[in-house]
């Protein structure tokens, strides 16, 4: 069976530090997991999460800082609102709201991050591929 496509959208600060440290410590991560690093989860909007599903992601995980750790202020709160709304949209679309999750980490929690990724992989593999597989749009930037 073809492995599912997993996408992580990762804040540059605490979660990326964890991800980096996990890589340095050679902790094994799901091979079908791809990461997009952004400066802050507050920069991500509903469109970008939906776009991931449109382009063929089977599951999306938002890796955030803890609410009180945000370097900019309201980043994780913005993330919670977006995740809440996009989950509702995914449910309406019949893609399933479980395919979008968010997890938060402090900068030393590399084991937690890797565990969360494996758990995410397990969850999405159990759900199988995303039922919506449209053609990609021919957008040019």
């Amino acid at each position: 069976m073809k492995p599912v496509n997993l996408l992580g959208i990762c804040c540059n600060w605490s979660p990326y530090a964890c991800y980096n440290a996990a890589g340095m410590a050679r902790l094994k991560m799901p091979p079908n997991f791809r990461l997009v690093r952004v400066m802050c989860i507050g920069r991500i909007n509903q469109a970008l999460i939906l776009r991931a599903f449109e382009y063929g992601a089977d599951g999306v995980i938002l890796l955030e800082c803890k609410d009180e750790d945000c370097r900019y202020g309201p980043g994780p709160e913005v993330g919670h609102v977006n995740v809440q709304r996009v989950r509702k949209l995914l449910r309406l679309l019949g893609i399933g709201q479980q395919r979008l999750i968010e997890r938060h980490f402090a900068s030393h929690e590399k084991e937690e991050l890797v565990r969360a990724l494996w758990k995410f992989d397990e969850l999405i593999t159990a759900l199988g591929p995303n039922p919506a597989k449209p053609r990609q749009e021919q957008e040019v930037s």
């Binding site: 469109a47 599903f53 919506a132």
Partner: peptide
């Protein structure tokens, strides 16, 4: 030349409309 123009809300609405082109969707609308 490809789709251009600024789609409002970063094209989120067009995104879900394109997601709806998948034939096997079971919506909960």
């Amino acid at each position: 030349k490809g789709l251009k123009g600024y789609r409002s809300h970063d094209g989120a609405l067009h995104s879900w409309m394109r997601l709806m082109t998948s034939p096997n969707l079971q919506q909960e609308r």
